[in-house]
């Protein structure tokens, strides 16, 4: 929800980044305030997933210009783990599998690491078990989920639910969901969207990175941004996503001059 009195969580100005010498992000400006849900849409190759990874601190990308303030800190100075501990969370498009490590072990390790950094109490395996089972109800996950190896043999929907479960445990201030809708059938999409909606509140913010409008039927954004060739070329309200769905991304090219004046 948009609220005039809310605080700024993320402020991106003129962000440029490249990989192996090729510039992907060519000057991005974005402000996200608490309570808001933003959608970043765009075709494959527009740079939207790169933007998500750069914010999370992926070392393969080199930031070549601009600034990012996160909760008043210079985000670009922090290694990825400190960004996570500071309250930034990236739900991966392709979560990795870790055969040999039980999901519950991994979840507790991540939870306790972040808790310790925030000066809060860590949980022992028993306490954590109760805690995580409660959170799992939110995503309608079966208990055997905890004993299986991290993401190993999980379906696409189970992997994405596991990402949102981690988000529920780590309670980030800013969640970035990178193509969380890809590879989900409609039932899984509803469950994941419901989880995200329940976790969203006036103190945190969410950025949805997506190719399709479909997800936005279930998680209604306050702002929709369209990325093209490494820049945000258009920003609007939730109607913009519907417009894109009916008219296609080509429509942007003929209209971006006239609508680009609309900003958050």
């Amino acid at each position: 929800m948009i609220d005039k009195n809310s605080t700024t969580i993320l402020s991106v100005q003129g962000l440029r980044a490249s990989i192996n010498g090729t510039e992907i992000l060519k000057g991005i400006d974005l402000t996200v305030k608490s309570g808001e849900i933003h959608a970043i849409m765009g075709l494959n190759g527009s740079g939207k997933s790169t933007f998500a990874k750069v914010l999370a601190g992926h070392s393969a990308y080199e930031v070549t210009g601009g600034s990012v303030q996160f909760e008043g800190k210079n985000l670009l100075e922090l290694p990825p783990e400190e960004r996570a501990r500071a309250g930034l969370f990236l739900a991966f498009q392709y979560p990795i599998e870790i055969p040999g490590v039980a999901n519950t072990q991994f979840l507790r390790l991540a939870y306790n690491t972040v808790q310790a950094q925030r000066g809060k109490e860590e949980l022992d395996p028993l306490e954590f078990d109760d805690f995580v089972r409660e959170k799992m109800k939110l995503l309608e996950m079966k208990p055997d989920f905890l004993e299986r190896s991290v993401n190993e043999g999980f379906s696409g929907g189970e992997k994405k639910r596991n990402e949102i479960l981690q988000m529920a445990l780590l309670e980030p201030r800013l969640s970035i969901l990178d193509e969380t809708d890809s590879g989900l059938d409609i039932d899984a999409l509803k469950i994941v969207a419901n989880g995200v909606n329940q976790l969203a509140n006036k103190n945190n913010a969410t950025i949805l990175v997506t190719h399709y409008q479909r997800l936005l039927n279930y998680i209604v954004p306050d702002f929709v941004h369209v990325m093209q060739a490494g820049r945000i070329v258009m920003t609007g309200g939730k109607e913009l996503a519907l417009e894109l769905e009916t008219r296609g991304y080509d429509w942007i090219n003929t209209n971006k001059q006239s609508v680009a004046g609309v900003t958050a």
Binding site: A56, G57, H58, S59, P79, P80, E81, R83, A84, R85, F89, L90, F92, P95, I96, L109, A110, T113, V114, Q117, Q166, L170
Partner: peptide, 10 residues
């Protein structure tokens, strides 16, 4: 990177 993004040190 996946693990670092969950708060674990390198």
């Amino acid at each position: 990177f996946y693990l670092e993004s969950r708060g674990l040190s390198e």
